[in-house]
Design a protein around this nucleic acid. Sequence first.
RNA 1: GCCGCCAUCGUCUAGUCCGGUCUAGGACAUCAGGUUCUCAUCCUGAAGAUCAGGGGUUCGAAUCCCCUUGGCGGUACCA
Length: 563
Amino acid sequence: MVYKLSPFGKGGLKGDLKNKISTANPSSALRTLPLLKGEIFEYYMDKIRVRFAPSPTGYMHIGNFRTALYTYIFAKKNKGDFILRIEDTDQKRYIPDALEKLIKIINWAGFEYNEGVFLKTDRGSTSLDHNDQKRSNLFYEKGDYGPYIQSERLDIYKKHAEQLLKLGHAYYCFCTPERLEEMRKNQLANKQAPMYDRTCLKLTKEEVEDKLKKGELYVIRQKINTEGITEFDDMVRGKVQIKNELLDDQVLLKSDGYPTYNFANVIDDHLMEITHVIRGEEYISSTPKYIQLYQNFDWKMPEIAHLPLLLNTDRTKLSKRQGDVAVEEYIAKGYLKNAIINFVALLGWNPGEGSTQEIFSFNELVEKFDLKKVHKAGAVFDSKKLDWLNSRYIKKLSIDELYDLALPFLEKKDFFVNPSPLTPLPEGEADKKDCIKKVLTIEQERLNKLSGVGESNKFFFQDINYGKELLHWKDMNDNDIISLLEKAVIVLAGIKEEDWTRKNLEEILLEAAGEKRGEFLWPLRAALTGEKKSPPPGEVAWVLGKKESTARIKNAISIIKNA
RNA sequence: GCCGCCAUCGUCUAGUCCGGUCUAGGACAUCAGGUUCUCAUCCUGAAGAUCAGGGGUUCGAAUCCCCUUGGCGGUACCA
């Protein structure tokens, strides 16, 4: 027996069969699925097409970033297309440069999209003015379903709204914002759910035409079918049911000619042939209204998945007030791309089946990700765990990679600072670079954020200004310390310039210390750094160089003698 | 208010669909110990969840059913 199924037509199937279909790899073409003995199940599935559809707010909210990540991973996993669509239908919230910033973050993250709006890298101007010619200098589009910026699709929404009008699934509404507010106030006072009261639905054809002729401001509202119950199948939540009588006649087209999100999103997802809609949980209760729209147009519903929210530590929706929400801020603090992606991916998802894996490369994420394993409950964003993950990723970096990543942070600091007469700073660019790399080698295992880079410069570049007490290890006396430090000078003098490496220094000093590690290494380390806590003496000496190290030790000897 | 969604250590989570192997496993954070010249790294260990609460079903429930509570989301000419 051969079953045939068209794309997404699995609604009528029973549980197990349905599961098999949606977990099978659904890249384009005809698929066959062996069932019970002898039975062949054939089904077609369109090429997967998913979109990330942010609204340009000037920064990338970390929750939105996770939506983009899951969507991108889903696309990669299913060998589908990933589309970037810009939802800029709120004129009041227009923010300059927002689009450019948005795309830059997506590029930074490495979310490669096949279609959408792209940033020209060789552009001159940095500012974007909305309906301005400059746009073409900054951005370009790729893909057959454009334009990908909603503010440039106004005629499309208008056309579709008019079609709904004709079909009787929408109507003109001339109510003023003031009247609507009044209405809601009354409804709330009467303990009713605030909902549009359909005043304008009662208008006659003539009245509507008259008002239109007079140029009265209007919106177009969706005429909801209030009978029955809408049920849908969510890829992460399973079945969700909402009674239709609770659905509001939402605005489709605003009086300024722009569509609402609720309308544009449906039109575009269909026109762009989006097969799977992955979005935040906040849209769950609107979904039945979208479903009615699809039904009104006689369009096929895409599969939908609603992702859980990211929360503050008090379990409210992650917000600006209680900490950083912008990806930009995490980058600025010195979190690595891979650490952020790894961490955010695990917020609300886990491969399950007993996995205890915490570190995932991007490819592993693609390999193991499954929307079905995404959580239903919101997740608190705990930056302590991010710190730990970040430190793990920093430790994995080669010293050249670390140097490149650290440079922007070092530039904001005075790394080579406050030289004492004893500490001449490296002069040439090459020497400086060399010195920085050595310091980074030492810092690498101590760092959990790139912003902390260069902070150990105090061990190397500062006045030697301390009392002899610092040099004492337990109950040593002055003479013992002096003789040990003098021994250290002799040991260092015996090392050739070309043998002055981190490893050699560590071995030689340890050997010189013999049994008395603490007695020898503590005064030496203190003499070299002037600090109670610091990296080991071998490493410090390695960075300082032979001449400088020797000078510091001799200085320490004289501090004791002069005390 | 109304509607919807959700609920396992402080946090992220495994286990829930297909009840017994769960006196609930891992990670972060915390604490203690070890390695060690100090710091950091690293290693070991401890503490930490009567599985939101209550009631069923069952020989047996974190797991199935019902109720309650709590949290969150939506309730806009925002998205």
